[in-house]
């Protein structure tokens, strides 16, 4: 019953979020601020993880493909497919849910408990529109670039791993990358990313905006926000995969 109440409250929140911004100039500034906070500041961790996980995926595949009848270019092919289809859009989104989600909930939760949101309300500001919509715009339109970067760096990580370990040749790896290239799969991954970005912006905002109490409650809300965002991403991933590829 409580969960149903929360889901209803979440959709009512979205109703207030998707309103015309009260002042276009302020809204534009907020969007750029959020692109910096939620997007640009996440590039480092995304790049680091993508490069190394890409390398590990390629090494693992290489170690498990020791049958002489299986061509070595399949290592590059498998690495590319797993990075584009799942690792970059889903795995990276779960990581971003942790990093960005906790930031959103704790910053909004702190604004709530220190009455900064009340101060905005009293001024006549639509606080949900003012605080949440820029986050949605920033993540939904910027995360596809981050995930595209994760794909490139992941595949590059596999290439470097081949060079360093000698498990497979660079030529075989590149042949595998070029094999059966389907642009639709990139589109599928970016559509998933945009849906996940929406969830990463809105679920933690919901937990932060409606927090009650003090610093401990803000901490608890951050944890809940990260857990639920990750769970919802995984569930949506299942349905989106079925819808778009099934």
């Amino acid at each position: 019953m409580k969960s149903l109440h929360s889901i209803g409250k979440y959709f009512l929140m979205l109703g207030q979020v998707f309103r015309k911004p009260q002042k276009r100039g302020i809204f534009k500034d907020n969007v750029f601020k959020e692109i910096e906070e939620l997007g640009l500041k996440s590039i480092g961790i995304v790049a680091f993880i993508s490069f190394f996980v890409g390398g590990v995926v390629a090494i693992q595949t290489g170690l498990n493909v020791d049958n002489p009848w299986i061509p070595k270019y399949l290592i590059g092919f498998a690495t590319k497919r797993s990075i584009i289809l799942e690792f970059a859009p889903t795995f990276m989104s779960v990581i971003l849910a942790g990093k960005v989600g906790s930031y959103i909930t704790s910053s909004m939760g702190t604004m709530r408990v220190t009455e900064q949101i009340d101060a905005l309300e009293v001024m006549g500001v639509n606080t949900l529109n003012h605080l949440v919509l820029p986050k949605i715009i920033a993540t939904v339109f910027f995360y596809p670039f981050i995930i595209a970067l994760a794909m490139i760096l992941g595949i590059f990580g596999g290439w470097v791993a081949g060079e360093l370990t000698g498990l497979y040749s660079v030529d075989d790896y590149v042949d595998g990358i070029r094999l059966d290239f389907k642009p639709y799969l990139i589109r599928y991954a970016l559509i998933k990313t945009m849906v996940f970005a929406f969830l990463i912006a809105t679920i933690p905002s919901f937990y932060g905006y409606y927090v009650k109490g003090g610093s401990i409650e803000v901490g608890k809300a951050s944890t809940k926000a990260v857990v639920w965002t990750s769970v919802v991403i995984i569930v949506f991933n299942y349905f989106l995969t079925q819808m778009l590829l099934g």
Partner: peptide, 26 residues
Amino acid sequence: GMVFQSGALFDSETIEDNIRFPLKMF
């Protein structure tokens, strides 16, 4: 106009930006 018990100033903004905010918004 409201003066909150805690002040409720926007802590990531300067004093000037805090006071300017309603003017900028409305």
